[in-house]
């Protein structure tokens, strides 16, 4: 068998997924031994033209990280899809929209206003916004179109596998790559490098009774490092998030509640809905006024429960009048 041909790309992403790939350390060399990397903008110098010139399906595996935020992301996603046999959505942004997806709570124009004018660190001429086409003496300069909404990878192209995480754990990436190398692949559409069980299953903290009278943010209280976060009033998305990032989960080990980056477990489509359902169910009060007060303690429910999954959620984006 010849060497496998890989492409690694980032859309709307922070680069963390690429770092996670690099973080496989010397194991990366094993990958390199088994595979040729044909395209990896973060690490290697290739041009889009190189990809365009490849024959269809000449890439064996494309690892696509990042969400689809603009026309360039979409264009390259489609291009890579055309050239790749297997398309893997790598990381939370590609799978769910990720942190960039939280922008779906804003209007496109509001984002541009803030970034180009509102932000205190920006000095920009009034009324100047990036244009898709700018005429200069040398000709026309083109910028990608900034979309109204952030999309997940599978909202623009067909995705074969999802490798969740923000970023995915390096060890999981390696396992998946090895599975691909050995041809040991699950059915298409599967989430790989994660478990069917939610994170709670591998959480070492002890659970007693889920009844909560106040919700806190981590900085607001000193909490018991041995006991379930939720039971102490800290919102932890462990129950509605796929496990498998690491065992025991790293965030939990570092005394931080799970934020949900591994996405919904297999029988759930809307992670936020499920999580808010569980969280509200543990409120220990039968007094409507007190219930209201306790709920008010949850600052920004949407950002909390859909932190990584807004574009992948059922409603995808805020409705504006």
């Amino acid at each position: 068998m010849g060497k496998l041909k890989f492409a690694i790309y980032w859309g709307a992403a922070c680069g963390g997924c690429d770092v996670a790939v690099v973080d496989t350390h010397e194991k990366l060399l094993d990958i390199a031994a088994a595979a040729d990397i044909l395209f990896w903008p973060v690490a290697l110098d290739f041009k889009y033209r190189d990809v365009e010139e490849m024959a269809d399906k000449s890439i064996d595996v494309c690892l696509f990280s990042g969400a689809v935020r603009n026309s360039e992301n979409e264009h390259i996603a489609k291009l890579l899809r055309q050239k790749s046999k297997v398309m893997v959505a790598l990381g939370a942004c590609a799978q769910l929209g990720g942190i960039p997806g939280l922008a779906n709570e804003k209007r496109r124009q509001d984002i541009l206003d803030f970034v180009y004018h509102g932000s205190p660190s920006t000095a920009s001429q009034k009324g100047v916004y990036p244009q898709e086409i700018t005429s200069v003496p040398e000709g026309k300069l083109k910028l990608p179109k900034f979309y109204d909404a952030v999309m997940t990878l599978d909202q623009v192209v067909e995705v074969d596998y999802y490798l969740p995480g923000c970023p995915p754990e390096s060890a999981r990436i390696l396992e998946v790559v090895q599975a691909i190398v050995t041809g040991n692949l699950p059915p298409k559409g599967a989430v790989v490098g994660a478990l069917d069980k939610a994170l709670c299953d591998s959480c070492p903290r002890k659970r007693e009774e889920k009844k909560v009278k106040v919700f806190y943010r981590p900085q607001e209280i000193l909490f018991d490092p041995e006991r379930c976060f939720l039971e102490q009033g800290l919102i932890c998305l462990g129950p509605a998030t796929r496990g498998g990032c690491s065992d025991p989960p790293r965030c939990i080990r570092s005394n931080m509640p799970c934020e949900g980056c591994y996405g919904p477990p297999p029988d759930v489509t809307d992670q936020g809905a499920k999580m808010l359902s569980a969280v509200s169910s543990i409120i220990d009060s039968q007094d409507p006024g007190q219930i209201e007060k306790i709920i008010d303690g949850i600052v920004d429910p949407l950002g909390t429960f859909y932190r990584f999954g807004l574009p992948a959620s059922a409603l995808r984006k805020k409705r504006f009048p």
């Binding site: 939610a198 009774e209 889920k210 379930c228 129950p239």
Partner: peptide, 28 residues
């Protein structure tokens, strides 16, 4: 309960008015 996806979070346990559902520690 579909045991292959249940994570033993115990949210259900405190809710049941009849004490009919509980997390079995050995299997979580």
């Amino acid at each position: 309960v579909k045991e292959s996806v249940c994570c033993g979070c115990k949210v259900c346990e405190a809710l049941c008015p009849y004490g009919a559902i509980a997390v079995v520690p050995e299997e979580n």
